[in-house]
Design a protein around this nucleic acid. Sequence first.
DNA 1: ATTGCTGCAAAACGTTTGCACCTAT
DNA 2: ATAGGTGCAAACGTTTTGCAGCAAT
Lengths: 151, 151
Amino acid sequence: MKHKQAIEIFRIFLKNEKYRITPERFEVMDAALDYDGHFGADDLYVLMKNENSSISRATVYKTLELLVQCNLLSKRHFGENLTRYESSFKRKVHDHLICIDCGRIVEFSDKQLSPLPDKISRELGFEFESYSFNIFARCSNPKNCEYFKDR
Amino acid sequence: MKHKQAIEIFRIFLKNEKYRITPERFEVMDAALDYDGHFGADDLYVLMKNENSSISRATVYKTLELLVQCNLLSKRHFGENLTRYESSFKRKVHDHLICIDCGRIVEFSDKQLSPLPDKISRELGFEFESYSFNIFARCSNPKNCEYFKDR
DNA sequence: ATTGCTGCAAAACGTTTGCACCTAT
DNA sequence: ATAGGTGCAAACGTTTTGCAGCAAT
């Protein structure tokens, strides 16, 4: 198994929260952590089905939420009515820039930005929990942009 | 009519873009600008129906997109699979903090944040278009929070 | 033995579409 | 006259739910 450390994290989480340890849950975890980039729950379901898994849609949807709860995945919304996930296991915090022409997603992290969510929360009388910051922009280089359109 | 200036903006936009000027479009505009706070397209449709409008769902959905195009409304996504709108007519740019316990939405604007979307876009080789910044946090004062839960 | 989890299908939800009729141009 | 908009209902894509059977505890 590739994801030894993640398996341990997930197992401990399930135990602590009194959820059952089932093979299906680890099967979804494995597929999710293997996925390169951002994916919708249904994308993952279809992928697993194509690989002859007998997993059900419901189990995929529910397990992804568990993986978010234990911080193995993070949840993203890029301005569509669609929930996307991405592995956050051993990855540093980052934000996203989305090209509105070609759909390319670039990850970045900005030093000036990082302290702001917590600072602003305190200023407004809240306890910071999480934030989302997405920039929508256009590739300056049109050729570049065309290239990614077909991807 | 309350929204004299907005009517003019919308009329000019429709004309420029060669869209037709119809009473239904202004009816939706009126209801949208009257709405206090953030609303989903369906909320607005139901509200209008309750006020005995004969508008159709399709017209409401399509017109809201036109109002976004001419900057009378802005579109928001607060981490659910639901598009929300809010009037941006004569309002200054702001971001949102959402309480994950009671759902209260607080608007803020932060001087350190404002220059970042454009700066980051340029640094990454993009032309800035728009951004979304949402903070998810908890009311520090539990009583406050309880109060808004019932709203 | 007892919950809780699974797969399945159906329902729910917000949103979009196809179409026949109507209306602004 | 004609392109485009409207209302309606049906379709859509994603997500959730109800339920009977199954498996982890």
